[in-house]
Simulated scan of single mutants.
Amino acid sequence: MGWPGWGVLLTTWRPSWVVDVLVLVAALAYAAGVRRAARAGEPWPLGRTAAFGAALAGLVVTFDSGVAVYGHDSFGVHMIMHLMLIMVVPALWVAGGPLELARRVGSPRVRVLVDSLAGRIGRAVFHPATVFVVYTLVVVLTHLTTFMQAMAGSPALHHLEQVLYLGAGLLFFATALGADATPSRPSFLGRFALMMLAMGVDTLVGVVLLLAPRTPFPAYELADVRVGGAIMWAGGDALMMLLIVVLARWWVRAAGQGPELGPWLESARRSALGLAPDRDGDVDGDVDRDEDALAAYNRMLARLHQGGR
């Protein structure tokens, strides 16, 4: 089956009861957390609530619309499902901050569970290298191997693939966006680099499929495979660039609260001012709000002034 057309995708709807029930439960739990935060005098940001609601709406569209109906038989539609599950829904979900909300207003048991992510295993799982490797392996192995052909004849593998996309996306953007209560939050420069590397993976796979001389998956026509490659290349890069722009806005906003340059550059700033690292060798302290740092900066200016004279 080839590309069914946008009109068919937008007008074909079929409920997926399991997903719909899970979405409803998540919505009720999140709404209860927001209400509890308001009662505690700590209103939850409206933007985060809107992002989480959009993530849930994205799940409904992915599993109830023509994307789900034709996503198994059409490679192009399958690629739309891929982007929804590995990029759109995870990015919105992370921006909604459900873990941070649970940490603030959850029961003691829930808070302990969230805080347990800061352990050694959690730091390893959410490490930038780990999330990039997982993202790369999922994207490459499901599109440039025989997995896609096997998936075309197996609904069970199709559902497994959906879980892999969603899991890899949540893991990746929890670290790349750094907007939720995860143990690994790289500097903004590190997050930009992580997103650019992931965009390179999407581009590579999309271009390979778009320029394929013959269909790599006999279950799908060559024209359909090329449509899927174009969607992955153009759509994936466009979505990642949009997220990079959002991250840049967060960086500009954070600049008003002090620069976030990363441990190495922050260490260089402290060394230039003649300051030792923070206690325990930590260099994450805010130099611009450190009284010793300000005094050292004034002494450095005085030395430069004396040298100029």
Results as ranks from 00 to 15, higher is better:
Val8Tyr: 00
Val8Asp: 03
Ser16Lys: 08
Ser16Arg: 05
Ser16Phe: 10
Val19Cys: 09
Tyr30Gly: 06
Ala32Glu: 14
Ala37Asp: 12
Ala40Val: 13
Thr49Lys: 13
Gly58Met: 00
Gly66Asp: 06
Val67Pro: 09
Tyr70Arg: 04
Gly71Tyr: 02
Asp73Glu: 15
Leu83His: 02
Val89Trp: 04
Trp93Gln: 02
Gly97His: 02
Leu99Val: 05
Val110Gln: 13
Arg111Asp: 01
Asp115Arg: 05
Asp115Asn: 09
Phe126Thr: 04
Ala129Thr: 14
Ala129Cys: 10
Phe132Asn: 04
Val138Pro: 03
Leu144Ser: 00
Thr145Trp: 02
Gln149Asp: 05
Ala150Lys: 14
Ala150Gly: 13
Ala156His: 09
Leu157Gln: 06
Ala176Pro: 13
Leu177Ile: 02
Gly178Asn: 13
Thr182Pro: 02
Phe188Trp: 02
Leu189Ile: 07
Gly190Arg: 00
Gly190Ile: 00
Leu197Ser: 13
Val208Ala: 14
Val208Trp: 12
Leu209Thr: 08
Leu210Asp: 11
Glu221Gln: 15
Asp224Pro: 13
Val227Lys: 10
Leu247His: 13
Ala248Asn: 10
Val252Pro: 01
Leu265Gln: 08
Glu266Asn: 14
Leu273Ala: 07
Leu275Lys: 01
Leu275Ala: 02
Asp292Val: 14
Leu294Glu: 14
Asn298Gly: 13
Arg299Ala: 15
Met300Gly: 08
Arg309Trp: 07
